[in-house]
Amino acid sequence: MPNDFNQQIIEEFRANAGEVGGPFEGARLILLTTTGARSGERHTTPVAYYADGDGDVLVIASAAGAPKHPDWFHNLVAHPRVTVESGAFTYEATAEVLAGTARDDAFARAVEADPGWADYQARTSRVIPVVVLHQIPSDGPPNVSASSMGQYMQLIHDAFRRELALIRAEIGNAGPTLGAQLRINCLTFCQGLHNHHTGEDIAMFPFLADSHPALAPVLDRLREEHERIAELTAELKQVISANPEGTAGPADPADPADPVDPQHVRKEVERLTAALEAHLTYEEQQLIPILDAPAGAAGPAH
Rank of each mutant, 00 (worst) to 15 (best):
A27I: 07
E284L: 09
G40C: 06
G100H: 01
A169W: 02
R161M: 03
V269C: 01
H79K: 08
E41P: 12
P176Y: 14
A169N: 06
L280Y: 06
V59P: 12
E284V: 04
E270I: 00
T45R: 07
N3L: 14
G140A: 09
E200H: 03
D210K: 11
L31C: 13
M204Q: 15
R81Y: 02
V47C: 11
H43N: 15
I184V: 14
I184P: 06
Q263C: 10
L276N: 01
A159D: 09
T198H: 05
D201M: 10
A17P: 04
A174G: 06
A64V: 03
D52I: 04
G22S: 10
I184E: 01
L219P: 01
V144Q: 03
L280G: 11
G26M: 07
I229W: 02
L164E: 09
H157A: 13
V132G: 07
G53R: 00
L208G: 04
V20W: 10
H196R: 11
A93E: 03
T188G: 08
R123H: 04
I9Y: 08
H279T: 00
C190S: 01
R103D: 00
G299K: 09
I229V: 13
R223L: 14
P2I: 11
E92Y: 01
P289W: 13
T90H: 06
D258R: 08
H302F: 15
H69G: 09
G150E: 05
H197P: 02
A159W: 03
E112V: 05
E268H: 03
P142F: 07
G36K: 04
D255Q: 10
D220T: 15
H79A: 03
L58P: 03
T177R: 03
A295T: 15
E277G: 07
A203H: 13
A295P: 15
L232T: 02
P2S: 04
I128G: 04
V20K: 04
F207I: 14
M204V: 12
A102N: 05
P67L: 15
H43A: 09
E283Q: 15
V57F: 02
N143P: 11
I167Y: 02
T124C: 07
A146P: 12
A113W: 01
E11H: 14
D119L: 11
V77K: 13
G26R: 00
S39R: 05
L232A: 08
G40Y: 07
A93R: 08
Q181D: 00
G172N: 06
A27R: 02
Q191G: 09
C190Q: 05
T124P: 02
G249M: 12
M153V: 13
A234H: 00
F73Q: 02
I184M: 05
V269T: 09
E12Q: 15
L178V: 05
Q8G: 15
A48N: 06
E268D: 06
T35D: 02
Y120H: 04
S39Y: 10
G55S: 07
A293I: 13
G40P: 06
M153L: 15
R42I: 07
V59R: 08
T247Y: 11
G116C: 11
Y50L: 07
P289A: 14
I136K: 09
T34P: 10
C190A: 14
G246Q: 05
A251Q: 03
V131F: 14
I171G: 00
H264S: 08
Q286A: 14
A99Q: 13
I240V: 15
H226C: 15
N143E: 03
R161C: 01
A242E: 12
K68C: 11
P137Y: 02
G175A: 11
N195I: 08
P256N: 10
